[in-house]
Lab assay of single mutants.
Amino acid sequence: TTQFTVHSPEQAEQWKEYAKQKGLEVHVQKKNGTWHVTIH
């Protein structure tokens, strides 16, 4: 599991796309103005 924080919805979307291409599961949670992205 990879977990990191991004600071814009655009970055979060890019990671979603990346994960989809790799066939991975991605979870994005918005918290205090940042987005926590978890890739399984």
Results as ranks from 00 to 15, higher is better:
1 T>V: 13
1 T>F: 14
1 T>R: 09
1 T>E: 11
1 T>G: 09
1 T>Q: 09
1 T>D: 10
2 T>H: 15
2 T>W: 15
2 T>Y: 15
2 T>C: 15
2 T>R: 14
2 T>E: 09
2 T>L: 15
3 Q>V: 12
3 Q>D: 08
3 Q>K: 11
3 Q>N: 09
3 Q>A: 09
3 Q>S: 14
3 Q>G: 07
3 Q>M: 10
4 F>S: 03
4 F>W: 04
4 F>D: 02
5 T>P: 06
5 T>R: 06
5 T>S: 07
5 T>K: 07
5 T>W: 12
5 T>F: 12
5 T>L: 11
6 V>A: 05
6 V>M: 02
6 V>Y: 03
6 V>N: 01
6 V>K: 01
7 H>F: 12
7 H>L: 10
7 H>A: 13
7 H>W: 09
7 H>R: 06
8 S>H: 05
8 S>A: 04
8 S>P: 01
8 S>L: 06
8 S>F: 07
8 S>Y: 07
8 S>W: 06
9 P>H: 15
9 P>I: 15
9 P>M: 15
9 P>G: 11
9 P>C: 14
10 E>A: 08
10 E>G: 06
10 E>M: 06
11 Q>L: 13
11 Q>K: 07
11 Q>C: 14
11 Q>H: 09
11 Q>N: 04
11 Q>V: 12
11 Q>F: 05
12 A>G: 03
12 A>H: 02
12 A>E: 02
12 A>S: 03
12 A>V: 14
12 A>D: 01
12 A>N: 01
12 A>I: 09
13 E>T: 05
13 E>K: 08
13 E>W: 07
13 E>M: 09
13 E>A: 10
13 E>L: 08
13 E>I: 06
14 Q>P: 02
14 Q>A: 14
14 Q>N: 07
14 Q>V: 09
14 Q>T: 07
14 Q>I: 12
15 W>H: 02
15 W>Q: 01
15 W>V: 05
15 W>R: 00
15 W>L: 09
15 W>Y: 05
15 W>E: 02
16 K>V: 15
16 K>Q: 10
16 K>H: 05
16 K>G: 04
16 K>S: 06
16 K>R: 12
16 K>E: 10
16 K>D: 02
16 K>T: 08
17 E>D: 10
17 E>Q: 11
17 E>P: 00
17 E>I: 09
17 E>T: 07
17 E>H: 06
17 E>S: 06
18 Y>V: 04
18 Y>F: 10
18 Y>G: 02
18 Y>R: 04
18 Y>T: 03
18 Y>L: 06
19 A>W: 06
19 A>Y: 10
19 A>K: 01
19 A>S: 03
19 A>F: 09
20 K>N: 08
20 K>M: 10
20 K>C: 06
20 K>V: 08
20 K>A: 09
20 K>F: 08
20 K>L: 11
20 K>E: 10
20 K>Y: 08
21 Q>A: 13
21 Q>H: 08
21 Q>G: 09
21 Q>P: 02
22 K>P: 02
22 K>E: 07
22 K>G: 05
22 K>S: 09
22 K>R: 14
22 K>L: 14
22 K>Q: 12
22 K>F: 12
23 G>E: 03
24 L>P: 01
24 L>I: 07
24 L>G: 02
24 L>D: 02
24 L>V: 06
24 L>Y: 10
24 L>W: 13
25 E>F: 13
25 E>H: 13
25 E>T: 12
25 E>V: 13
25 E>W: 11
25 E>P: 05
25 E>Q: 12
25 E>D: 11
26 V>Y: 09
26 V>R: 00
26 V>W: 05
26 V>M: 06
27 H>I: 11
27 H>T: 13
27 H>N: 07
27 H>R: 07
27 H>E: 09
27 H>V: 10
27 H>C: 13
28 V>K: 00
28 V>N: 00
28 V>H: 00
28 V>S: 01
28 V>Y: 03
28 V>W: 03
28 V>Q: 00
29 Q>E: 14
29 Q>S: 11
29 Q>V: 14
29 Q>W: 08
29 Q>T: 13
29 Q>R: 11
29 Q>L: 11
29 Q>N: 08
29 Q>I: 15
30 K>Q: 13
30 K>E: 15
30 K>H: 13
30 K>N: 12
30 K>Y: 15
30 K>F: 15
30 K>C: 10
31 K>W: 08
31 K>V: 14
31 K>Q: 11
31 K>T: 10
31 K>E: 11
31 K>P: 00
31 K>L: 13
31 K>R: 12
32 N>M: 04
32 N>E: 09
32 N>H: 06
32 N>G: 12
32 N>Y: 05
32 N>L: 05
32 N>C: 12
33 G>P: 01
33 G>T: 03
33 G>D: 11
33 G>H: 05
33 G>M: 04
34 T>H: 13
34 T>K: 14
34 T>D: 10
34 T>R: 12
34 T>M: 14
34 T>N: 11
35 W>E: 01
35 W>A: 01
35 W>K: 01
35 W>F: 10
35 W>V: 03
36 H>S: 08
36 H>G: 04
36 H>L: 15
36 H>I: 15
36 H>R: 09
37 V>W: 00
37 V>H: 00
37 V>L: 04
37 V>C: 00
37 V>D: 00
37 V>P: 01
37 V>I: 14
37 V>N: 00
37 V>F: 04
38 T>L: 08
38 T>N: 03
38 T>A: 05
38 T>M: 08
38 T>K: 04
38 T>W: 08
39 I>V: 06
39 I>H: 00
40 H>S: 12
40 H>P: 03
40 H>Q: 09
40 H>D: 05
40 H>A: 09
